[in-house]
Write a protein that binds this DNA or RNA. Structure first.
Lengths: 228, 228
DNA sequence: GGTCGATGTCATCAGATGATGACAACCGGA
DNA sequence: TCCGGTTGTCATCATCTGATGACATCGACC
């Protein structure tokens, strides 16, 4: 099996969400907002699966059903499109307290990578082929959205070295996510998501629990920091 | 009294390991084995730092002090050179029981990435820009060298789901290694290696210990599976 | 000294890629 | 209907990259 994540097929350039408040202009063939959205969506998918360099703008245009030259018009260039994809990916992650508690985080990250592949954010992190701006953008997203809330929860429970432990936990989590979605090994790829999440949560809970609670690591379902 | 044929050692691509059984041909300026070795070494460094696509053969030749066209002559093409780099990296890792016990594994992997960057093997794993052959080669190396011994140790201690747990632990470990060497977050990058290894080993030990021993996860120094 | 294979150097090709600008098609309003 | 801006299409450029082959240089052997 290829390391490139094979995800569900995309729909066409329709179904674009119009967030700029423009009136619908129903049934219009020429729709800049829709084209832009289709490009962004295709970019999210392809960048998320193959990374920056390996994805060509022609490919993005083809998947979006739109001429690739429009990328330059709407996003400036390929790198800026990547940043836009990172931002979009991050915005899509704002669930209702989606990232609260280690078990939640694990389940969300694993689930998302199961459905859509690694995603542009982590691709930007693990590859050196992106510009510094892209990496900084991606890093800030993860730090602010996952690491910091987790570290705060832990600090509130008087965990020593909370920030460091949170960083380690998140890094480990991304390694596991990568190993699964890229098919590094056999079992981690085929194990049901729930079982994987349980095992991972169990292990990482050791890192995130307050000093005295180490013995309770066995209960994986509700384990973690501040789940609830 | 100076016998001339003990000629001055020229800096650059000397110190080649001659495995083809050719006679030494002392002091020869034109030395295919040395050139090949220099290319391989440069390839290990550059592929390990930047990955496959981002590294150009001209760059490798420049670092090796050798014309890049020799890559085609000695290795066939760029992809085969990558495979050679993976094999060389793997062979370099055969220390005396270097990968025995989780603490050992953690220390070795972190240490190596601290010194030399991620390395070509993990680069091949995390990126999709390499050919399937390269990925398979890299995957086999890690599976055979790290995951399987670890899983066997665990199985010998009657750990349930040993193989899966070993895969998870190794994946997590690579995530941490990546996070540190690529500088994802602040503290994981700057923390002393010993402290990081202790924390990581502590957490992963939960995964690798037999069912009843979960309480002993605190002793990080000797923790792990079959250390010593 | 001469020959020949091994080794190294160089120029160049073909393909891919990101970017750009000219041009065409479309739409809404005057 | 006519006009001007918007949107989409296309051809093309400059660059980079891996690969290839011709040629030069070296060293061993006769």
């Amino acid at each position: 099996m290829s390391a490139e994540y094979a995800g569900p097929e995309h729909a066409g350039p329709e179904a674009a969400a119009r967030e700029d408040g423009a009136r619908p202009r129903a049934g219009r063939a020429r729709d800049a907002a829709a084209s832009k959205q289709a490009l962004l969506r295709a970019a999210q998918e392809l960048f998320g699966q193959k990374g920056f360099e390996r994805t060509t703008i022609r490919e993005i245009g083809e998947r979006a059903g739109v001429d690739a030259a429009l990328i330059a018009r709407y996003f400036g260039n390929k790198a800026e499109l990547y940043v836009a994809a990172v931002v979009a990916e991050d915005n899509a992650a704002r669930g209702p307290a989606e990232f609260r508690g280690l078990a939640q985080i694990t389940d969300t990250l694993v689930g998302r990578s199961d459905e859509r592949g690694p995603g542009p954010i982590i691709q930007a992190l693990i590859r050196s082929d992106t510009s510094p701006e892209i990496r900084v953008a991606a890093r800030d997203r993860i730090a602010g959205r996952i690491v910091e809330p987790l570290a705060e929860d832990m600090a509130a429970q008087h965990v020593d070295r909370a920030r460091l432990r949170a960083e380690i936990a998140v890094s480990a989590l991304y390694g596991i996510t990568l190993g699964r979605s890229l098919g590094w090994f056999e079992e981690i790829r085929s194990v049901p998501r729930a079982e994987l999440v349980a095992l991972v949560t169990e292990a990482l809970t050791t890192l995130t629990l307050p000093p005295g609670d180490a013995g309770g690591a066995g209960e994986t379902g509700e384990a973690g920091t501040g789940a609830g």
